[in-house]
Every structure is written in C-alpha cells, then in structure tokens.
Amino acid sequence: MSRSPAISSLPALSRRAVLKTAGAGVALAAAGFPSRLLAADPIKVAAIYTVPVEQQWVSRIHKAANAAKERGDIEYVYSENTSNNDYERVMREYCEAGHKLIVGEVFGVEEAARTVAKDYPEVAFLMGSSFKPDAAVANFSVFDNYIQDASYLSGIIAGAMTKSKNIGMVGGYPIPEVNRLMNAFMAGVKESAPDTKFQVAFIGSWFDPPKAKETAFAQIDGGADLLYAERFGVSDAAKERKVLAVGNVIDTQKDYPETVVASALWHFEPTLDNAIGAVKAGSFKADDYGVFSFMKAGGCSLAPLGTFEGKVPAEVMAKVAEKEKAIKDGSFMVEINDAEPKSS
C-alpha cells in the first residue's frame, strides 16, 4: 500500500463546523462530466483523510480502495492525519500530480474543497459531505455512510440483550451522519424493549479513545449494561466492566469476543466502484452517492454474531431476518432521522 507523508497531526475540526457551501440545496442531477476524462486502466486515485486510516469510518474507504487497487482498477495513494488547514493544499497537489479521482472527507472544508474542484474540471471528486452536490460544480460528488438499515437491525438485538433496559451511547459529534445511525439503533432497540432508557453523549472528537472510554465508564456507573460504540474506546470500557457493546461501521467481534454482541457494517465498495466506473466511462457528474450505502445496494450489513451465535434469542433473530428481507425488497424503510438524539 502506498501513502504520501502525513501532512499534519493536528486534530480535525468538528464536522459540524463547516464553512458555508455554495448551492447546498441544488438538485442532485448536474451536467455530465467531460467525455475527455475517459481513463485508461488503471486510473490514478488519491485519498485525503483527516484521521488515521485505522479510524472506523476512514478504514472502510481505505479497505475499498485497496480492493480496487488489488483488482488492477486503480493506482492508489493517500494522506492521513491531514488537518483542515492543509486540506486544500493537499487536494491541489494531488490534482497537479495527475490523479483523476480524489476521494476524501470535506465536512470541515466544504467551500475550499468545492473551489478546488472548480479549478480542476477534469478531475473527479468523491467527497464525504453533509451537503448535497451543486450543479455548478459538475465534477464534485458527495457521499455519506447511510447505514441506518444495519444500525436498526443491531438495535433489535441490543434491545433483547439489555437486562437493565438502560443503554449508553457514545458518539463523536452530533452531526447527521452520526445522528441517523444512533436514531435508527434506538428505534431498533424499542422494537424489542420499548421501555429502554438511553444515555447519549458526544465527546467532540473523531478519534479520542481515552475520552470515549471515560464517557462510557460514566454511563455504566449510571446503570447502562449495554453500550453503543460509535467511537473507539467504548468497547474497551464495556470489556473492562463486563457489559455488552454494539459496534458501528467495522466488525470488532474478534477483538472483543465476550463483549461485542453485534455490529452494523459499512461497505464502501459500492460507492467507490460506481465512481470508478463513471470516471472510466467519462460519465462522472455531480451526484449524491449516499444511496450506495443502503442495505439494498450492498452498502451495509449486520456482522456475523460470532461468539454470540445462539446466545441471542431465536425469536429475535427471526425478527431480524424478517426485517432484513423487508429492507432489501423495499417493503420496509428504516427512517432517516438526522436530528440530534437525546437522553431519555
């Protein structure tokens, strides 16, 4: 795997502290990408991350990019720990180096990132964003991890496994991409245990395991016997205090075999592969790739239960299977609720 030097180790700004973006409410469809972008195999792809590649969210993008590289579809380089102050400069450097697709996360640098895209109309940009695409920036597409389907299913399991009917939830920031997963999880919990209470907290960081762990300890002291681990560090607290945890985005069951009972997984491959195909076909345009994270698109799933196989009541797993089938065939839709979840 190839990487460019980390530009800065400064912590990333809150994704909620975004700059004003132009045309945030413009419709998804946009003018087609220039046909002269038709690329030969493999195409040069660069990714820019504000956190280490080990971080949950970024690790899924990194995994998908490496899979595409191994297939021979792309050449792949990346920068990690890039501060928001350096983000625009790194974007421009990759563009100047001839990369045809830039992938990243611009939650804190929306305006600057879209300005770069305007300056390099023959480069495709696929960026994690809380905003929508802008028809005026035809080469800038957005995505987010819409894995509310899998989060909902993990909640059904969690509701059946909590005995105290008190669940702790630790998130990074109360922004849409986090809120929608927490809300879906809570809705799933109430399918199994409608009288469950929730302790909700945000640590103000995307990567601070010690702070997440201490916050989780406080929730356990407050009566929680199961934790929703949106951040690294929460499952460590659960393991130490011998309570259960539900994972998010990645599967950590092997690392916490007696702790993590279920996880909602994000699969970035459908998102990235569709973008790569569009670049190769010369058809890349401003669009919202968020739909490729839905379960029916193969963008998310419920992780195998591993050591908890057989420990979750059979009737609960039957309900999970029923709901999963309905989600995939479109007869049931998990609500996308981006409002900040509250303790209850």
Results as ranks from 00 to 15, higher is better:
residue 251 D to K: 09
residue 337 N to V: 04
residue 11 P to E: 08
residue 312 V to Y: 15
residue 314 A to T: 09
residue 314 A to Q: 13
residue 49 Y to D: 08
residue 85 N to K: 03
residue 32 G to L: 11
residue 273 D to K: 08
residue 148 Q to G: 10
residue 161 M to A: 01
residue 265 L to P: 13
residue 186 M to H: 06
residue 121 P to T: 02
residue 198 F to W: 00
residue 135 A to L: 08
residue 207 F to T: 02
residue 134 D to K: 01
residue 4 S to T: 10
residue 285 K to Y: 14
residue 173 Y to A: 03
residue 218 A to G: 12
residue 156 I to V: 14
residue 149 D to C: 06
residue 296 K to L: 03
residue 177 E to K: 02
residue 165 K to R: 09
residue 243 V to C: 00
residue 258 E to I: 01
residue 25 G to C: 04
residue 41 D to Q: 14
residue 15 R to S: 10
residue 11 P to D: 01
residue 98 G to V: 07
residue 7 I to S: 13
residue 192 S to V: 06
residue 343 S to M: 08
residue 98 G to S: 08
residue 91 M to S: 00
residue 283 S to M: 02
residue 263 S to A: 14
residue 310 G to S: 01
residue 160 A to L: 05
residue 28 L to P: 09
residue 90 V to F: 01
residue 187 A to Q: 06
residue 55 Q to S: 10
residue 69 K to Q: 15
residue 336 I to K: 15
residue 6 A to G: 04
residue 56 Q to I: 09
residue 96 E to S: 08
residue 205 S to T: 10
residue 97 A to D: 15
residue 196 T to C: 06
residue 132 K to V: 01
residue 92 R to C: 00
residue 128 G to N: 13
residue 29 A to S: 05
residue 165 K to Y: 08
residue 247 G to V: 00
residue 304 P to S: 11
residue 126 L to C: 10
residue 199 Q to H: 04
residue 62 H to K: 05
residue 164 S to M: 11
residue 210 P to Y: 14
residue 169 M to Y: 10
residue 135 A to Q: 13
residue 282 G to P: 12
residue 248 N to P: 05
residue 62 H to T: 06
residue 256 Y to D: 09
residue 320 V to E: 01
residue 328 K to I: 10
residue 95 C to N: 15
residue 44 K to W: 06
residue 51 V to H: 06
residue 80 E to Q: 13
residue 128 G to D: 03
residue 206 W to A: 05
residue 246 V to R: 04
residue 131 F to E: 05
residue 304 P to I: 05
residue 28 L to N: 14
residue 194 P to M: 00
residue 129 S to V: 06
residue 294 F to I: 00
residue 255 D to Q: 15
residue 173 Y to V: 02
residue 272 L to I: 14
residue 301 S to F: 05
residue 144 D to G: 11
residue 30 A to H: 03
residue 328 K to M: 12
residue 43 I to T: 13
residue 22 A to G: 09
residue 169 M to T: 03
residue 135 A to D: 13
residue 331 S to E: 07
residue 216 A to Y: 01
residue 206 W to I: 03
residue 130 S to L: 14
residue 88 E to C: 07
residue 205 S to Q: 02
residue 34 P to D: 05
residue 31 A to V: 07
residue 132 K to P: 07
residue 229 A to C: 01
residue 313 P to S: 04
residue 185 F to C: 11
residue 123 V to L: 07
residue 201 A to E: 15
residue 37 L to A: 02
residue 138 A to L: 05
residue 328 K to H: 00
residue 339 A to T: 04
residue 217 F to E: 15
residue 238 A to V: 03
residue 30 A to F: 05
residue 127 M to A: 11
residue 324 E to L: 03
residue 195 D to V: 01
residue 324 E to C: 02
residue 69 K to V: 11
residue 92 R to N: 08
residue 289 Y to E: 06
residue 28 L to I: 08
residue 293 S to N: 15
residue 129 S to I: 03
residue 338 D to C: 01
residue 216 A to L: 06
residue 5 P to R: 02
residue 240 E to Q: 15
residue 250 I to L: 12
residue 235 S to Y: 00
